[in-house]
């Protein structure tokens, strides 16, 4: 019965999983990679901004700060490693 239904769905163009979904998903992924081609300058600016925000809450080791783009087969991630020197009292009381 279900095969008959899917056959009819295909016949009348109501098949949900047409190949365009595959095309769009592949494009989405490939563009994430393409667009993630960020320059070292951009990463430097991003680092400075991150430090500015984070230092409102805690004292961090500026020299030990690492920010990089991590690419895997199916995703792209911004990975930041930020060693904390000391937590501020304000941050503590807020938590």
């Amino acid at each position: 019965m279900s095969t008959l239904l899917s056959f009819l769905a295909k016949l009348f163009g109501r098949e949900e999983a047409g190949s365009k979904h595959i095309a769009k998903e592949r494009l989405r992924l490939v563009l994430v990679h393409d667009r993630a081609n960020v320059s070292p300058q951009l990463l430097q600016v991003l680092k400075a901004d991150l430090l500015k925000v984070i230092s409102n809450y805690m004292e961090v080791d500026e020299k030990g700060l690492e920010v990089q783009i991590d690419r895997t087969e199916s995703s792209v991630a911004l990975v930041a490693s930020i060693p904390i020197k000391r937590l501020k009292r304000v941050a503590k009381s807020m938590a």
């Binding site: 163009g13 098949e15 999983a17 047409g18 190949s19 365009k20 979904h21 095309a23 769009k24």
Partner: peptide
């Protein structure tokens, strides 16, 4: 082909 779901439509492309 768009109607069959076998080609990206206008919205799909604009969206991207």
């Amino acid at each position: 082909m768009v109607q069959r779901g076998d080609m990206m439509n206008i919205e799909d492309i604009i969206d991207i």
